[in-house]
Amino acid sequence: MSTKTNMVAPPEGVVGEGFFATKLNDVVGLARANSLWPLPFATSCCGIEFMATMASHYDLARFGSERVSFSPRQADMLMVMGTISKKMAPILRQVYEQMSEPRWVIAVGACASSGGVFDTYSVLQGIDKVIPVDVYVPGCPPRPEQIVDGVMRLQELVKTESTRRRNSPEYIELLASYNL
């Protein structure tokens, strides 16, 4: 039987007859990385690019993000796409707070990463002023390939992340620095 299905390669481990031994970290990382449920927080043109990213041509579902979660409680990956005004910053924070651990954040586009061209009193100069960010995707707006690349880079982070990281003092300190 021939199949076109691509399988994710197994992590490093010891293979023997009838058994396979590897680290729990790697297995958990593999599972997490290939089923990242995105929560789109789209406010402007980057959100339009994200629609293309999710649609059939670029198809983010190929990377395990089939299920777009519109509830922060069930999402793993917050994708902030577009200009975030200062008035919206508390709402973004609230969405982030409602996500359960482990959670990751991608800042898509120049505005979410740094405020972009909107160097003005009403616009938040990058979402990393209010929430921690894992991956920044440059571009104004970025092409769908770039967004997919950002997701794949996040997958690499997720794969190698220790299962203990979210309990580590460094992580707690990071959240504390954002008053979370």
């Binding site: 160097d119 003005t120 009193y121």
Partner: peptide, 18 residues
């Protein structure tokens, strides 16, 4: 501030990449 008054700067002074 009242941002359209001329004495207030238009640019955000919290910007770190500029």
């Amino acid at each position: 501030s009242f941002p359209m008054r001329k004495e207030f700067p238009m640019e955000d002074n919290g910007r770190t990449d500029k």
